[in-house]
């Protein structure tokens, strides 16, 4: 049974709220698990006993207090249990070096936070379509 969960690690309450709002406008939206920082995200993911029950996708903000999104990403990709969970890095930065670094750490995608809510809604829609509805890459699915 698929959980249809998206984990979002985001310290900015507003950004998280927008994400939630954008998500909620979809037909049959996935469930959003919101963690306020990197440490909370890792703890949250540790509570999933089976790899198959992990969220379908983790979206990590880069700049977070305590542990950055990239550090969380690194930990997830080096843990056999979580390494196959798709991770998208989300940031307000469109600096080429930031983007390159995220992919170096093993990110499956990089999103620049749109400045318009409308754009965010479209983005969230496409994420949902690709990663939740059509993505069949996870080993648990095979």
């Amino acid at each position: 049974m698929y959980t249809n969960q998206i984990l979002l690690a985001e310290d900015d309450t507003t950004d998280a709220e927008f994400f939630q709002r954008a998500l909620s406008r979809l037909d049959s939206p996935p469930e959003l698990v919101w963690c306020k920082n990197g440490v909370e995200a890792l703890e949250g993911l540790a509570s999933y006993t089976e790899a198959a029950s992990l969220p379908r996708l983790a979206i990590l903000d880069i700049k977070m207090p305590g542990m950055s999104g990239l550090e969380v990403l690194e930990k997830l990709k080096s843990d056999a249990r979580t390494k196959d969970m798709p991770v998208i890095i989300m940031s307000s930065s469109d600096e080429p070096q930031d983007i390159a670094r995220a992919y170096d750490y093993g990110a499956n995608g990089y999103l620049v936070k749109p400045s318009r809510f409308q754009d965010l809604r479209e983005l969230v829609g496409s994420i949902n379509y690709f990663w939740i509805k059509t993505n069949r890459l996870r080993p648990a699915d095979s």
Binding site: T14, D15, F18, S92, S93, S115, F117
Partner: peptide, 12 residues
């Protein structure tokens, strides 16, 4: 980058 967050909030 930090300035963009409140702008997004206003916009959003």
């Amino acid at each position: 980058h930090d300035l963009r967050a409140p702008l997004r909030a206003i916009n959003g």
